[in-house]
Design a protein around this nucleic acid. Structure first.
Lengths: 225, 225
DNA sequence: GCAATAGTGTCTGTTAGACAGTATGGC
DNA sequence: GCCATACTGTCTAACAGACACTATTGC
């Protein structure tokens, strides 16, 4: 029988978050500029960092979103996947537990403190080459998001409180990269009974549109598409 | 701004596997008796162990299945979830990357070596109280399996090469805990075009039944139920 | 021929998807 | 009145689910 490897006693565990928001018809991800030497200086990467002895990986993910991006609460977060390629971090062995975060920028609570980090929202279609394996992590995150849009009501985490059916449709089309027939889309979504009417309308340069909201903000699995 | 925690420099990373098999109409999980002092001695737990410096978490999961259970290859394995509760291991901070494994005992390759570990297959409905948070991990694994049975062809990883439609139905009923109408079940599954006929029949104490097999052993997402 | 399980078909209600014209408001 | 976008309904094909009887083999 083959001899066992030496156990990994000094691994470092990191928690990285892919925080997504839908803004002006564009899906964006929050990225952070890396300052600390010696690797990837001035490159962009996911907001995240080490897990401390007294916190879970999810706690750490939330803490780093606060410490790096000033994001306090009001966003959805779920575990995505753990990345453990041996050479994924040039500093040594770092295993990263990645979290998928979804938010609406108007609903999120930002801290008013000043942070010594440079963060920026990037459209997911214009992401530069990132540090570590973060491009790969984002790819997996988008796959997960697209899958969940089809069989859960997770869209509620990215959309504003109130929205028109056209906005909802545009959102689905942009993120899934497919077009839907307007009549079928509306019929299907209204029959799912996930939405509630409001009395308000969105006024623009043409006929005003009714505003809807999600009835409940609890994640449900429902076949959508 | 709140001061950052101390980073976790000495965390230990483990990889644990929930290896499932379907045997005589019963879904079973492979468990291992814990011998090493000082905790949980003689309790059962998931086969797994530490991740070594030169291997990924998945490599480690497979290695521990081999070293502890003699299981060489021929099983399906996917990452399930990472468990990082601070006190989940009394020995100290251990973060576990859990893997969901699925196999057919007749198709799997067992090592012929002798292993100093006591392992046993337990019906998932008769699992004792396990070490660490392993009961919880198994709960999550079964949830994942049930979800994937409904929208992928993952059943192929648990079923034998050849099986009758009745056996397939029994499998679905047992694992999902619901009954299906025989005519509808067969109609639906055959229309999905996932199965191929063989010329063989299973003979028993009554009318022989045609044997089918899965056409391809590639995981596909297909709406099944 | 009896027990046991395999195998089969129809009907109905629901859903998915194709498809085009009218309504309302800003300017 | 014109532009822009909101809003609406029908038809057809496919699918989901309820339902009961005949066929084949071992004994």
């Amino acid at each position: 029988m083959k001899k066992s490897f030496q156990p990994l006693r000094f691994a470092i565990i990191a928690a990285d978050s892919i925080l997504l928001a839908f803004n002006n018809g564009v899906l964006e991800v929050l990225l952070m500029k890396i300052h600390r030497p010696p690797y990837f200086i001035n490159q962009w990467g996911l907001p995240g960092g080490l897990v401390s002895p007294k916190e879970t990986a999810e706690d750490a993910a939330r803490r780093h979103l606060l410490e790096k991006g000033g994001i306090k609460r009001g966003y959805y977060l779920e575990q995505l996947c753990t990345f453990s390629r041996v050479d994924r971090d040039p500093r040594g062995r770092v295993v990263s537990v990645a979290y998928l975060g979804l938010c609406d920028k108007n609903r999120i609570q930002f801290s008013k403190d000043i942070f010594p980090y440079e963060v920026r929202w990037f459209p997911v279609k214009k992401i530069p080459s990132l540090a570590y394996d973060h491009n790969e992590i984002i790819r997996v995150a988008l796959e997960r998001l697209r899958a969940k849009l089809e069989y859960t009501n997770i869209a509620m985490a990215l959309l504003p409180d109130k929205f028109t059916l056209s906005e909802l449709q545009t959102f689905y089309e942009d993120v899934l990269g497919r077009k839907f027939d307007k009549r079928n889309f509306r019929k299907k979504f209204l029959l799912l009974n996930l939405l509630g009417k409001t009395r308000e309308k969105r006024r623009g340069a043409s006929r005003p549109a009714k505003l809807y909201r999600f009835r409940a903000h609890v994640l449900k699995t429902v076949k959508i598409m």
